[in-house]
Write a protein that binds this DNA or RNA. Structure first.
Lengths: 210, 210
DNA sequence: GTCTATAAGATGATAGAC
DNA sequence: GTCTATCATCTTATAGAC
């Protein structure tokens, strides 16, 4: 692969991370890459397509970096631990911010929307098997949709990342609260059949009540 | 208050909701308001200050619309019910999208960052007393930071809103999963002292283990 | 593949007539 | 308060020399 191509891909991802998709102009990206502005269009046709390609590559790389760690996780608390480590490292790397930028830019750009959907699918695809494994012997397994939970976890981390950009201390306290909820689920797991019965009764009463 | 001023405020909020902060140019806003472009600068000095004012007003109004409903909530499941109703209505009104746009634009604009922080503080201020009330008699009350939980709930809904813009069906299944977690917390509440003991033991073992 | 030059348009913001 | 006209600057994208 051409050197200029990869320089542009790297620079595009960096600019989106730091300035958002709105700030990622052909000139800004080319300047960062140290190449001529016209090469953006020679190699990628449009700015949008460059951003799309750069973000997909960044998401693939980031997901790959955590595949091993996630493969070793067997509990929800373990998942949240990796999530917190991931959050800390990728916040510095800017990769969660990059996803948030894709999502927020999706409204006015179908190419970004496609990239955003791809990014979310990649992460949900990584996390879902972990959730499945963590809840395998749990009394919750029958009640909960693991794909839905994986999506909720991914989306929540996305929201927390956005929040962190605005109020780092607030976001830290929010992460603590989420972690405690994970512990709670494990406690419920430990209590086993007792909870299964109570949960079933609760769900039944809620459904008939609503 | 001048008619033009309010027209511009309304138009600015609408454009941010529909096109994002990046698409909210002086010309676009003025066209939507049906007034001359130069009036943006006469009334608000800069485009940024107009967007800031418009978003703060929109957040205040949206929070006010749910104050009564939130005041009647006494459980976490009830909070999530209101949250889901709020999510459904404000998604159509675009007010959660507006917040997400503020957050994602915060990186490259300190004025937006201030507005974003204000928006988050407003919603956390509304939700925190509800969480406090919902957990008042709970075995979890001693362990959990209610402000942190309120922040986590707000940030998670923000992430879910972003996700919804990209994959509506995926977001719906994520919301279902979150709702089930709320039910779980209530089940734990019903089990009372038993859980309190188990939770304490778990937290102790986690702390000594780490 | 890479460069310069340039077209064609959008942007924030201002000056000055009314 | 509101308008027109305008500046300087930014944008995407292309044509054509090398």
């Amino acid at each position: 692969m051409s050197d200029t191509r990869t320089k542009l891909l790297d620079a595009a991802a960096d600019i989106v991370r730091e300035q958002g998709a709105a700030g990622a102009s052909a000139r800004a990206i080319a300047a960062r890459a140290g190449v001529n502005q016209a090469l953006v269009f020679y190699h990628f046709e449009t700015v949008r397509k460059l951003i799309d390609a750069a973000c997909r590559r960044a998401v693939d790389e980031a997901a790959g970096r955590y595949r091993e760690q996630l493969a070793a996780v067997t509990s929800l608390v373990g998942l949240l631990d990796v999530g917190r480590e991931l959050h800390r490292q990728e916040r510095d790397a800017g990769n969660v911010a990059l996803m948030a930028q894709l999502m927020s830019g999706a409204g006015r750009d179908p190419v970004l929307a496609e990239a955003a959907r791809y990014a979310m699918d990649v992460w949900v695809g990584e996390i879902e098997p972990v959730v499945e494994r963590a809840l395998h012997d749990s009394p919750l397994a029958a009640a909960i949709d693991t794909v839905g939970l994986a999506r909720a976890v991914s989306a929540s981390f996305l929201g927390l990342e956005l929040y962190e950009g605005v109020d780092p201390q607030g976001a830290a306290s929010a992460l603590d609260a989420v972690q405690l909820l994970g512990v709670l689920v494990e406690v419920v797991d430990d209590l086993g059949p007792l909870v299964r019965l109570a949960l079933r009764a609760k769900l039944r009463s809620l459904r008939s009540g609503a």
